[in-house]
Amino acid sequence: MLEIRGEERTQRPVPREPWTKPADEGGPKPPDVRRPDPSDLLRRMRRVDPDQARRYRQRSGQ
């Protein structure tokens, strides 16, 4: 197996903090398949203009 060349790699201390924070600190939580609370989300969804996508036209990008 080839070695990664050390001089091209940053030498830094290993970060102590995890990639995401534990659930009790507002970070990752167990998978949650509860349906969103209809009260607020549905209200917002009902406000969406049904013709918005029909009108939405863009130039080609990359």
């Binding site: 969804m45 969406v48 203009d49 049904p50 013709d51 918005q52 996508a53 029909r54 939405y56």
Partner: peptide, 10 residues
């Protein structure tokens, strides 16, 4: 229907 695309966009 078109509404679903509009919701997708939103």
């Amino acid at each position: 229907g078109e509404l679903l695309r509009s919701l997708d966009l939103e």
